[in-house]
Amino acid sequence: MTGMMRTALAVTFAAAALYALQHTRPLYSDITSPIVSWGGMGEDVEASAFRLSLDRVRVARTLNVETFGKTKPYTSSGVWVVAEGKAEAKFETLSLISGEWLSRRGVRYILTDRIPATIEMMPGDVYQPGLPRPLLLVFEMPPEAVNGGTVVVARSKLMPLDDEIRIATDASEADIEPALTIRRNEEGQPWSILPQG
């Protein structure tokens, strides 16, 4: 009898082990997920190919974009989030194409494609080693996504196992400004953010 019981036990054990393995297998997106470096506001966060810091995050209901003397308003069914910071390549010339806002609930919002490229935002810049340059990220999201959001920056959207920098922001739903203006500058800092339109 013990022989049969032992067989039965072995089969049950094998079934349980297989079940556990099957249900704890990581998703494909977890296996190929980028390698993350975490940081907070104002901190210089280092990834292996670049470093990034976020200095300020502002939230507004309307965004006015001023280029070449003309101002165009952009309304939204949610709010605009404007993040400013600095980035520097460490070893070779590179571009940072992918910027996302990860809300507390895990929903992602990408960099807005409504604002024209005459305003110099992160995807259009080239970063040279040894030369930090200012960086601008603009997102559009529902107001509920603002609190506890994380800014996620990577070189590209598609490369698996690439570096990624995540910065936990201090943006709050309580500080929503009525309007912000982003003005293109011809010299010096490529843009200026002005409050209240």
Binding site: K90, F91, E92, T93, V126, Q128, P129, G130
Partner: peptide
Amino acid sequence: DGRTWQPVL
């Protein structure tokens, strides 16, 4: 130091 720069456009 092994850093490389690409030409600017």
